[in-house]
Design a protein around this nucleic acid. Structure first.
Length: 444
RNA sequence: UCCUGCGUAGCUCAAUCGGCAGAGCAACCGGCUGUUAACCGGUUGGUUCCUAGUUCGAGUCUAGGCGCAGGAGCCA
């Protein structure tokens, strides 16, 4: 008889529970928590869309099924059927009165990750070694859902603004910027490298589409061992023909604001679960403050770094000192030529500076966007390649672009994980990637 | 790569002056029909990171190594 009941019950997802109150339903998922009250068992079932408290009374189901529920292990895969009803005392506002309990796969015990207690937390080393299981934690799912929403916001805005997604290669023949260490691999018998940027290729595709972007993983083989660095990370790189520095900054502030506001709107519950104070994020609307590098240096002189020399790049403490003066992301533009990439266009009025802009996030999250106007004159670019002692033959195709319809053009790169850290208030980049590749760590 | 700190039960951590290896949580067994980090009783659980040294005796001291964390540099 009970069998007939569960056959008739409807398979539903927990986030649709409100539509099935009063009906007999079946849930499948993983046991997140069990509270043993003897003849009464509270089983908290997670199905990927939410968590449902299931009430298992001994008298409401066959004895073998009750015993199975009473001894079920954490993270076992189970199917639970019963009547769904609204219940104030239950965590999500709904509760399932179980009349059938089936074990699909019993998890081994003990489950390696303990529920949070005042007796102690897990350390980051242990958690990262168990990343394949740590991902099930409510905090981690909130972060990764937010990441997915952020990716969607990025793509939607660019698509709506007429940017065309044009993918750039991950396997590349030579160092794009020459300076950074690349992951080396092999293309049959020839040396090859994993891309650290798609930008140079996007400078080619703007000749076909005008406005483009590439969005995918990028790779840096630098031995950077900090909370802000991963060896494999995602970067979105829009590129625009017939566009100079000021317009580039306008696009960036519109774009970043849209991303922030979309996440605030669509992921409010997840940000609340992360205990993120979003008051300062609400402020992130155009225009953003813009300061010239010269003025940024003066600002540092007046705020704790009196000896900072003109001509050097900012380190993390300097970025923090600058961003602390503003309640929004702040642009620093016109950097000294010596600290920026070879392809950036010098300012004709200040040839010791380039038409570059970095966007520094508030609250100590550092640089999230780096952009610039690119050299469009053939000879200027050739001289720059020579000055940086880069192999000209590797850049022939890039130089070629300056021969056929060259024009002032600009673009920028935004680090997905850096932005996600800022939005979610994460202390370390390791939580911003599903399977982070960190210095000396790429398992699992 | 540099600076600083830390490696003890599955996890998070104690262990006085160099003198018997401990707790909480998890797990397991039992009790409880309203728990939300349940509660109560009981049980199990150790290569004290590795190697060498000092000592009657080393988790503790010394040297080297390995691992991890935080910060810096580099960058997004």
């Amino acid at each position: 008889m009970r069998k007939e009941k569960s056959v008739l019950s409807i398979n539903i997802k927990i986030n649709n529970a409100d539509a099935y109150v009063g009906q007999d339903v079946t849930l499948t998922g993983w046991v997140q928590k069990r509270i043993d009250k003897g003849r009464l068992q509270f089983v908290h079932l997670r199905d990927g869309t939410g968590v449902m408290q299931c009430v298992v009374f001994k008298k409401n189901l066959p004895e073998d099924q009750f015993d199975a529920a009473r001894h079920i292990t954490l993270e076992s895969a189970v199917s639970i059927s019963g009547a769904l009803r609204a219940e104030e005392r239950a965590p999500g506002g709904f509760e399932l009165d179980a009349n059938a309990f089936a074990v699909i796969s019993r998890a081994e015990d003990p489950y390696p990750l303990a529920p949070k207690r005042d007796g102690g937390e897990h350390g980051s080393d242990f958690l990262l070694n168990n990343r394949h299981l740590w991902l099930r934690d409510p905090r981690q799912t909130a972060i990764l859902r937010t990441r997915a929403t952020l990716v969607g916001a990025i793509r939607n805005w660019l698509d709506d603004q007429g940017f065309v997604l044009v993918d750039t290669p991950i396997i590349t023949p030579a160092a794009a910027e020459g300076t950074t260490n690349l992951f080396a691999t092999e293309y049959f018998e020839e040396p090859a490298y994993l891309a650290q940027t798609g930008q140079l290729y996007s400078e080619a595709t703007i000749g076909a589409f005008g406005r483009v972007y590439c969005f995918g993983p990028t790779f840096r083989a630098e031995k950077s061992d900090t909370r802000r660095h991963a060896m494999e990370f995602w970067m979105v790189e829009p590129e625009m023909a017939f566009t100079e520095l000021d317009e580039n900054m306008e696009v960036i502030e519109q774009f970043v604001s849209h991303c922030v506001q979309t996440v605030l709107r669509e992921r409010a519950a997840d940000l609340a679960a992360l205990e993120r104070d979003t008051t300062r994020l609400q402020n992130v609307l155009p225009p953003f403050p813009r300061i010239h590098y010269d003025d940024a240096v003066k600002l540092l002189h007046a705020n704790g770094y009196p000896d900072f020399p003109w001509g050097e790049d900012f380190g993390a403490p300097h970025e923090d000192a600058i961003s602390a003066q503003f309640d929004k992301p702040v642009f620093v533009h016109h950097y000294p030529r010596g600290v920026k990439a070879f392809y950036m266009q010098p300012d004709p009025e200040r040839p010791d500076t380039v038409l570059a802009c970095d966007l520094i996030a508030p609250e100590g999250y550092g640089e999230i966007v780096g952009g610039s106007q690119r050299m469009h004159d053939y000879q200027t670019l050739l001289d720059a390649i020579d000055a940086h002692k880069l192999p000209q033959e590797a850049y022939e195709w890039y130089l070629d672009l300056r021969k056929y319809g060259a024009q002032p053009h600009s673009g920028f790169g935004m680090g997905l994980e850096r932005v996600l850290m800022w939005l979610c208030g994460l202390p370390h980049i390791r939580e911003a990637l599903p399977f982070p590749r960190l210095y000396r760590r790429f398992y699992p």
